[in-house]
């Protein structure tokens, strides 16, 4: 670092005294490179090179030690007939749908509450944000206990409706639902913040004008607030989709993908194949599919954004 900083110091004054443009542009190149070098080196070493290597590994049958055996596209072909892979993909889709259709609306409701004219709301808003602050591992362990069939509070609540000792996390038909509930609990406050910022940005005059026209609170929400929040809803959905593709921690901690793969995600399946079964080649293929899906989503979003800007809608 030291030498790089010195380099910048000596390089730039030279650029200012130089009369030949060639030398000047060389100096500019050196300056820019020195500013960017640390970031680019770290980024190549830990992000770009690993992605490329993952693609490479995905063409091998390899246990992580010694030399692998080149198998071409075999890993990908196996993936297509792997039921667990399709289950994982379906479960990832559930996470996406829950994020968009439960977390985002709930986040919006929470944001509206924060701005509602009720007493003590400042204290409320402080607590509403709590779930997003603590580590996913802590969230997972806490909820495993709350969902415990014997001592968990959730069973205490549902027993009112006649359900006794539900083993939420060890039954295939309830495990996914239980984890999704926890995801909603953890991430809704994040969308709350995004919506709160957006709602505060809506000009007060619009509501005043509507008030004069005798609009009800209901009308005001659907005719003013919601349309003006569209860009935030869109960007929240993007974050939800991308975040859901990456989901791992909470599932790993709460169910480990079980029982019987009922909560398996691409992330947990890839981890198991790589670091439990040591099928590094196969795991790399799953990892690369995850990368590919994230890339496709990003490209689609960028393209939509480009057209939207061109048309001049929202913004």
């Amino acid at each position: 670092m030291e030498t790089q900083l010195k380099g910048v110091r000596t390089a730039t004054p030279a650029a200012q005294t130089a009369t030949r443009p060639k030398k000047k542009s060389l100096n500019k190149f050196i300056t820019i490179s020195l500013f960017l070098a640390p970031a680019i080196i770290v980024y190549i070493l830990y992000v770009l090179y690993p992605i490329f290597t993952t693609l490479l590994y995905s063409f091998y049958k390899w246990d992580g030690v010694g030399a692998g055996e080149y198998v071409g596209l075999q890993n990908y072909i196996n993936l297509l007939s792997d039921n667990v892979f399709w289950t994982s993909l379906t479960n990832n889709t559930w996470v996406i749908l829950t994020s968009i259709f439960v977390q985002i609306p709930l986040g919006l409701i929470m944001a509206l509450m924060l701005l509602a004219p009720i007493r003590g709301i400042r204290l409320f808003s402080g607590i509403y944000f709590f779930p997003f602050l603590i580590s996913t591992v802590a969230v997972g362990l806490l909820w495993v206990l709350m969902l415990d069939p014997l001592n968990g509070i959730i069973n205490q609540i549902v027993s009112v409706f006649g359900f006794e000792n539900v083993e939420w996390l060890s039954q295939t038909h309830t495990a996914m639902f239980a984890v999704l509930l926890v995801i909603v609990w953890q991430f809704s406050p994040f969308y709350m913040i995004l919506f709160k910022a957006a709602i505060v940005g809506i000009p007060e005059e619009l509501y005043e004008a509507a008030e004069i026209d005798g609009a009800s609170a209901f009308t005001k929400f659907f005719r003013i607030t919601l349309p003006l929040l569209m860009p935030t809803i869109v960007s929240s959905s993007i974050l939800a989709i991308v975040g859901s593709l990456k989901a791992f921690d909470i599932f790993y901690v709460m169910t480990g993908g079980g029982p019987n793969h009922s909560t398996e995600l691409l992330g947990t399946y890839m981890f198991k194949q790589a670091f439990v079964n040591f099928n590094m080649g196969y795991a790399s293929a799953i990892a690369f599919v995850m990368f590919f899906l994230a890339m496709i989503v990003t490209i689609i979003i960028q393209a939509l954004d480009y057209y939207r800007k061109k048309k001049g809608a929202y913004v």
């Binding site: 070493l45 690993p50 991308v242 790589a274 990892a287 994230a294």
Partner: peptide, 23 residues
């Protein structure tokens, strides 16, 4: 260069896990 960095926000960590482990 800017877009290359920004694209990292979308990246699933899993896509780098095995190489980073080996590294």
């Amino acid at each position: 260069v800017f877009l290359l960095f920004i694209a990292g926000m979308m990246l699933p960590i899993h896509a780098t896990l095995i190489p980073v482990f080996k590294l």
